[in-house]
Design a protein around this nucleic acid. Structure first.
Lengths: 195, 195, 195, 195
DNA sequence: AATGAATGAGTTTTCATTCAT
DNA sequence: GATGAATGAAAACTCATTCAT
């Protein structure tokens, strides 16, 4: 069933399938076969497009990272006050598309991968730095420059921490509630640091 | 040359080897052979002792959980004031034995495992609840009961968040600095919530 | 962009590419993709033209056999004395077009193929018989009929033996020197058998 | 069915099986599975012992080369005159264990392999040099030193050439006849070179 | 108790081949 | 006529697990 111009669609389908498969089976157990089956293509095609399991996984993470970036940029574009910018960064991280069980599984797996795989680590650093830079930028007008860095780190840690903890909680994660929780905690840290 | 009384030593050696192997190869790639080789025994023996790969990995997890618990309990036993108890919980989480690259890799791997494996999830919940309970207990005398729960959650998220972020940073993690950072952030949250 | 009259050119290009590919990767590892890429066409087209890998390889063999035959016939056409005819056969086998590393690899590969593949064996027999017949014919006027057969076999063995040994030697093969060596050895055998 | 001390036996069985399989299927088509099945073991074991297909093939050739060497050395040990030494080298190359269709297939395949695989080429050089050295040594007392080198090369080419040609002949190869043919041809070359 | 030997089951990977355009 | 797309089938290779010793 070869049709022309299918490559981009197949690639997307494979990446989506990879996210679901990682969630369902766990990163350690996913096979190219499983992912390809979910995407409705042959394992051979997945290989043809991505070159191998590791590279499909990296492509998947690049995709998630870029989606996350888009979520945050879209919110930042509409933000007008410093408070809104701060909120945009936090809420972007808990956007509906991101804060889903399957995506969380992929992120955690990515953290693990980053421990050993240099390319994964590099990608993760890009995300980390971008988050920090966004936070520092938003906080610059809300406190002194020295405090901004420290509050930004607190905020980043809270985002990651809440993210992970919520993803392991019994009930399915509630993005709105999680974002609100982080926002309030950061606001608290911020007011305190004004004093 | 089997010697009597070797079993407990071999079990410990295998668990340590598992932690190192997870760090070196990544959870997805660890093999019984690799673990056994690092422990200086045959793969067949590792099998014999633990019953299988999954169970060896779970035993490793239980070991880490119990070590963490011990670190915290030891510090709590010496704490006399509520502030010291709070500090004990935080610092226990960043204890030298815990906050090492290999152990961090193993912990992250277990977070991932917990997304799909019920037994791993159960074990991780035990840790989560114990941490929360320890925190709430320490905070009870420092603020109102309602605020205690919220600050405890903030503290827990900060611990996990700082933990992960530091473990992925360029420079090798500094337990003392990390603990201090979390302590200060929690103290800030606490003072603010008094107001 | 199909153009008319391209087929014969493409066929030749594919056969040349096959020879190069066999040399570069070894007969066992050649793939249609590799050959097609070297010829600058798609694997599908190579398939279309030749009907399959085996048949492309046999066509390549037929091509080599026929080139060798042409080399010898061209030289025989110009030979006037029995000695010249003998020389023509020997030198034809070491003609520049034939005695190149890539072609040598292909020939050896075909020898191997001929061990198991009946069609390849049939083709190789044609070459063997033609060589013998050419030699016997050239030798007929130089010695007795009985001796001619024996010297022809010696000559044939020397041609094949020198061919293989030179092609595997460290230095790149020197056609002129190889041909002269065989010629002299055959002349020696011939003079001796006169006695 | 694991029994202790089986490794050397299995290795030998696998090498024999490889020789037969190469003959039956052709080098390009042999699979580890086929070889292992012929040896009565699992493909996994073949991998375990040899590390991969290429290495099994190299091990097979090392085995054949060493057998050939043994055949020649055994004959040389019993030879007393220069003529007997010369005969020992020639007949060793056509020894019953060597001059069998399956072994011939393996050798040819090895020649091909040597075109691209450096390790195979290295091994082949060892054989080539040893053969030449044996021949020159045997010829030294039969002619002048300068002629010895040239006759040795003729002899070596004859051995290889007859070997290959006989292996492609219709009738199954006759070692005795082949050896006699080469011996006579070499003797002829030798007598001539005396003059 | 401990291990080397052995394998079955499964995974990645490669390719010739086919098909729609 | 020519190709990119797609796949089935088969191969190499890996590994947890079992078994005889």
């Amino acid at each position: 069933m070869p049709r022309i111009g299918m490559e981009p669609l197949r690639r997307k389908a494979l990446i989506s399938a990879a996210i679901e498969a990682i969630h369902a089976r766990g990163m350690g157990q996913v096979t190219m076969g499983e992912i390809a089956r979910r995407a409705g293509v042959s394992a051979a095609l997945a290989h043809h497009y991505f070159g191998g399991k590791d590279q499909l996984l990296l492509a998947t993470m690049r995709h998630l990272l870029s989606e996350l970036s888009d979520e945050i940029q879209a919110r930042l574009a509409e933000a007008e006050t410093p408070e809104e910018r701060l909120s945009a960064v936090i809420r972007g991280n808990f956007a509906a598309g991101q804060f889903r069980p399957a995506v969380i599984s992929a992120w955690l797996a990515f953290y693990v991968q980053a421990q050993t795989d240099p390319e994964a680590r590099r990608l993760l650093r890009v995300y980390t730095r971008r988050l920090e830079s966004n936070l520092v930028h938003a906080l610059r007008d809300l406190t002194t420059r020295e405090r901004a860095a420290r509050v930004a780190e607190t905020a980043a840690a809270l985002i990651d921490g809440v993210w992970i903890r919520r993803s392991l909680a019994e009930k399915s994660p509630d993005p709105e509630e999680a974002a609100r929780f982080v926002e309030e905690a950061v606001r608290t840290a911020l007011r305190r640091s004004d004093a």
